[in-house]
Amino acid sequence: MAKVPIQFTLNGSEKAEFVEGGTTLLHALRDKTGDTSPKGGCHQGTCGACSVIIDGELRLSCLTLAETCSGTDIQTTSGLAEAGVLHPLQRAFLDAFATQCGFCTPGMIMAAKVLLDHTPNPSREDVVEALSGNICRCTGYEPIIQAVLTAARANSQNAA
């Protein structure tokens, strides 16, 4: 099958790849660009582990065809830390012990980031709603909810 050229921005740097038609963005990110922060949990859109941000929107990379992403701006968890300093969400997840096996963590952080980008002061219900598409089998969710609320407070203090 003919390969399709795609170009996109990944965490601020330009990427150009050739992918087979029908390749998922998850596959292209992990196996072409080497960014393994999006995880493949179910490959069918139910677990949220593959979540990435495309042009500011939360998307499941396992259900997104790579060839539809040309010209987009993609963010993943591996691009969050700046100059070795963790993003407030990453810091909060660590401090709240909100990660155990870690498989759900990048997807959770992406979902939380989109929430905080749109709703800087979320209620607990907002956080629960935002995370409800992401499955975690380890933590019981409560530490994750607390981490997101803590990161939101840290953000609003920095902004003030």
Binding site: G41, T46, V128, S132, I135, G140, Y141, E142, I144
Partner: peptide
């Protein structure tokens, strides 16, 4: 058949613990 169908309480179903 998998963890998507073999569900546990989600973030909205948590008991106060």
């Amino acid at each position: 058949t998998d963890f998507n169908q073999y569900l546990m309480p989600g973030p909205g179903d948590l008991a106060q613990t």
